[in-house]
Amino acid sequence: MSSGLSLAHEPVTKVPHGKLAMWIFLASEIMFFTGFFGAFIVLRNSNLELFSHSAAELTKGLALLNTFILIGSSLTMALSILNLEKGNTGKFKLFLGLTILCGFGFLIVKTIEYSTKFNHHIFPWTNVFFSFYFLMTGFHAIHVIAGMIPMTYMFIKAFTKKGYNHPVKVETLGLYWHFVDLVWIFLFPVLYLIFPAH
């Protein structure tokens, strides 16, 4: 502070500003996906047949693979934070790099999945189920990309001379990243699995 005042004191809630704001933002994100899931449930109930046989056309194997990739990335993210807090910068870089790699892996699998759909002439406008499928997974993928941008920034910074030593920021980003994983945890059964294969 320039004038020696102590107006900017410790956060009252003991939660750092950025982390608190991230939680508030995540509450908002939950509502964003609430809009989609709510709409999905409604239109599913009025188009049961359609949803059932459309879901059967999705590639469950790729989705399963992607679930594993995201869970793995959540773990590496958590470990990278843990290591940075311990001051273990080498492992921090390793795990953060792995997380980014997982993000790329997820996106690559997603691309393969999409292109298979396009090859089978399945597009967002094919029917309501696929509209939901492309919009929800699309928004999820955008979230993955949005998380990877600051992650890459931190990763590159970590290799500079100064290094990157802001555990709270990494933790905040981690919250976001786990949330993206969480959304997928629900997308996976809702879109791919819970329609029995008649």
Partner: peptide
Amino acid sequence: ITLGTPVLAAAISMQLADQYLHTSF
């Protein structure tokens, strides 16, 4: 705002898709 606006954002995305991706939410 935090709890209400995102729902509108979701709805807007769906309407945009209806316009440009020819979906029919």
